[in-house]
Design a protein around this nucleic acid. Structure first.
Lengths: 343, 343
DNA sequence: GAAAAGACTTTCCGCGCGTAAAAGAAATTG
DNA sequence: CAATTTCTTTTACGCGCGGAAAGTCTTTTC
C-alpha cells in the first residue's frame, strides 16, 4: 500500500476522522469511547498500522503499564518456570512484563532495581537473592514502587510475600521417609544465600526430633548457584568416607539431589527404595528435570502456578485499590509429595 | 539529608552550577565535557542522586541504548545460558538488554517483535523459533531494526547469523561413535521446529554414508518443547520393541538424550561403553546438566560463550559503522567432543 | 419532543529532555 | 601577550503525547 506513513497521533487522528484527544482516550481504554467511534478508529488502525510512541506516552502518564519481574538466577529452570507464569499472567492483564535476572550478584540486583526505578513501573515482582541482597536498597525500592516478593522472604519488606510453606513440605517428606525406611540426613549447601534453605534446615531438625530421631546435617561447599556441582563433589566425599548414618538422604533442593545422584551412580550405588538398593535420595522443589533423572527423583512439588497466580493477583489488587501496605500479606503454599523411584 | 528533591535536569543543572545543555551532554557521554566540569557534575550527583527521565531521553534520541534479546524458550537452560552471556556483554558495552522469551509460540514471537519495534531499540539479538516463525514478519522487523540472528538460521534475514556448525559437530560424534563401537541410530523429534534439527539429520546421514554404514533415523512424537518427555516415551517404545539396529543411539540434542536415559534406566538397561553395558547414548549441545546425568552424557559442546561474544561484536560493529547489511555475515562455530560415560 | 446526560471537538498548556545556533568564557598555542 | 581553539552558556524550538476546559454535537430518558 502506498499509504503515507503515519508517525504521530495527530496524523492518525486526521486520517481516521476522529479528534486526537478521543484517539488518545481510545488507546488508554478502548471501551471508554462510543462503539461507533471505536469501529472507525479500528478500521483506520487496520489501514495505517500506527502505534503510539511509548516514550511520549509514559512521559506524561503518572503510571506506566510496565511490570518488572526480577529473579535471582534465570538459568535455574525453577525460576525460569515461575517467570514464565508471571509473564503470561501480566500479558493477560494487559501489562508489559520486563524480565531481569540478578545472576546471583548483589551489585547486579541493585543495578536492576535502579534501572527499574527509572522506568517507573506500575509494579514489580521480586525474588530477591536472599541473605546476599542489599536489604537497605531493596527496602528503599519497595517504598517507592509497589512490590510483591516471592520465593525468598525478606521480612517486613514489600507489599506482600508469596512462597512455599517449607515447614509443611519438609515435614511431609521427612515423615514419609521415616515411615518407609531409615530416617534421612539433610544435605544442603554450606552458606545458603537463600532463606528457604535455612528454614528447611530448621524444619528438618524439628521434624526429626518430633519423630524421635537424631538429625544429621551435611553441608556442601561450592560456588553460589552451582548446586549440581556442589551436590556431586560433596556427594562423592560423603559416600567415599561413609559419612552417612543411615541409608537415606534428603537434599535441600532437587539440584543438589541431581548432583548427589550423579555421585552415587559413579560410585556404583543403586539408588531407590526396597530390596537391593543401597541408598534413598529425596529432593525438594520438583524441578522440571526431576522426573527424568535416573532413577526418577522423589521430591516435594512447589506449587509454581499458584505462587505466580497469587503474586499477580495480589499486586494487581493493590494497584487498583491504590492502598499501600498497611497489612503486609504473607501467603504460603503447601507442597505436595511426589513419589518416584529414588526414595 | 533535607535536600529538596531534584526532579528535572533543569533543577539539577541549577544546583550543580552548570547549564542544562552541558549536563545533558554529560549524561550522553561523560568524556565529552571538560574534566573540571565533569567533577562538579559528579559531586552534585552524589549529593542529590538525580537520574534523567528515560522516557523523555528516548523520545528525542533517534536511537535508544536498548538492546532486545529474544529467545524461543527461556526455560531451556541452553537458551538461558546464551541469554545470560548476551546480557552481560551488553551491560559491559553500556547498553540496556531487555530479555524476551517466545515460549515456543509464533504469535508471541510476533507480539514481542511488535513491542520491541515500538521501543526503538538500537539493535536486537534474535533466536527465532525456526520453521514455526512468521518469516514475513521477522523479515520486516529485521528491515527496520538492526538484528543479528543466532542459534536458528533463517536464511537471508538479518544483518548476520551466528551459530553452530552442525555438519562438523555431528560428523565428529558420528565418527567417534563408529570408531569406538557400533554405528549409531539418530534419535530426533518428528516435527522439529528448529532448523538445526534438520541440518543435524542431513549431517548424520551424510556422515554415516561416508563411513559405509546404513543410517537409521528414529522420530519421537511430542509437544513442542518437551524434549525430555518425547525422548522418554519414544525411548520406552524403542527399547520395548527392540527397534534399534545397533546398541548405539545418537540423540539430536541433550534433552532428548536425558529422556532416553530415563527410559533406559527404567527398562534396566545399563548405559555406557565397554563390557557389561547394553547401550551407548550420546547427545548434542552439552546441556548444563549433561555432566550430572546417570551416567554422565557424552555429547558435543556448542561454544556458547563464543556465539554470544561474536553476536555482540557483530551487532555493535554494525551499529557503529551505521552500514546496513550489504554482506550478510554468517559465522559457524565448531563443536567439541565431550567424552563422558554414556558413550 | 424537550431536557438531561453523555460523547466528542477545539484549543491550549505542560511533561522532561535533545539539539541547534550564536555568543561568551576558558584553556591552549606560538 | 594576542590569536586560536575548545568548551560552556544562553536562547529557543521541537519531540509526541496527556490532560484540562469549554463548547458543540449526539444519544438517552421520561
Amino acid at each position: 500500500m502506498a499509504t503515507p506513513k503515519i508517525r504521530t497521533m495527530e496524523e492518525f487522528a486526521a486520517v481516521s476522522g476522529i479528534s486526537r484527544p478521543t484517539v488518545s482516550k481510545y488507546f488508554h481504554d478502548p471501551s471508554s469511547v462510543r462503539a461507533s467511534t471505536r469501529d472507525r478508529i479500528e478500521a483506520a488502525l487496520e489501514k495505517y498500522d500506527y502505534s503510539p510512541n511509548i516514550y511520549a506516552m509514559n512521559q506524561n502518564r503518572r503510571l506506566t503499564r510496565n511490570i518488572g519481574i526480577v529473579v535471582p538466577f534465570l538459568a535455574d529452570p525453577v525460576f525460569a518456570e515461575i517467570a514464565r507464569n508471571l509473564e503470561t499472567n501480566c500479558l493477560a492483564a494487559g501489562f508489559s512484563p520486563i524480565l531481569y535476572s540478578s545472576h546471583g550478584a548483589a551489585e547486579l540486583e541493585n543495578d536492576i532495581l535502579d534501572s527499574l526505578r527509572s522506568q517507573r513501573p506500575a509494579g514489580v515482582f521480586l525474588a530477591p537473592l536472599g541473605c546476599k541482597s542489599d536489604r537497605a536498597q531493596v527496602e528503599k525500592f519497595c517504598d517507592q514502587v509497589p512490590t510483591v516478593l516471592f520465593d525468598s522472604e525478606l521480612e517486613g519488606i514489600g507489599e506482600a510475600f508469596v512462597g512455599s510453606n517449607n515447614f509443611q513440605s519438609i515435614g511431609l517428606i521427612v515423615e514419609y521417609l521415616c515411615r518407609t525406611g531409615e530416617p534421612p540426613a539433610l544435605f544442603e549447601k554450606r552458606n545458603p544465600a537463600n532463606p528457604n534453605s535455612r528454614k528447611r534446615r530448621l524444619a528438618y531438625t524439628a521434624a526429626m526430633e518430633a519423630l524421635g530421631h537424631e538429625p544429621q546435617v551435611i553441608q556442601a561447599d561450592g560456588d553460589g548457584w552451582d548446586f549440581e556441582g556442589a551436590g556431586y563433589s560433596e556427594g562423592m566425599r560423603v559416600i567415599t568416607e561413609r559419612a552417612l548414618q543411615t541409608d537415606t538422604v534428603l537434599c535441600s533442593n532437587d539440584r543438589l539431589a541431581i548432583g548427589f545422584l550423579a555421585a552415587a551412580h559413579e560410585k556404583g550405588l543403586r539408588v531407590g527404595r526396597g530390596y537391593g538398593y543401597a541408598l534413598r535420595v529425596a529432593g525438594h522443589d520438583d524441578h522440571p528435570f526431576s522426573r527424568y533423572t535416573s532413577p526418577s527423583l522423589t521430591t516435594v512439588a512447589q506449587d509454581y502456578a499458584s505462587i505466580a497466580e497469587k503474586s499477580v493477583e495480589t499486586l494487581f489488587r493493590r494497584l487498583e485499590s491504590g492502598s499501600r501496605s498497611e497489612d503486609r500479606e504473607v501467603t504460603l503454599y503447601d507442597g505436595k509429595l511426589v513419589m518416584r523411584r529414588s526414595a
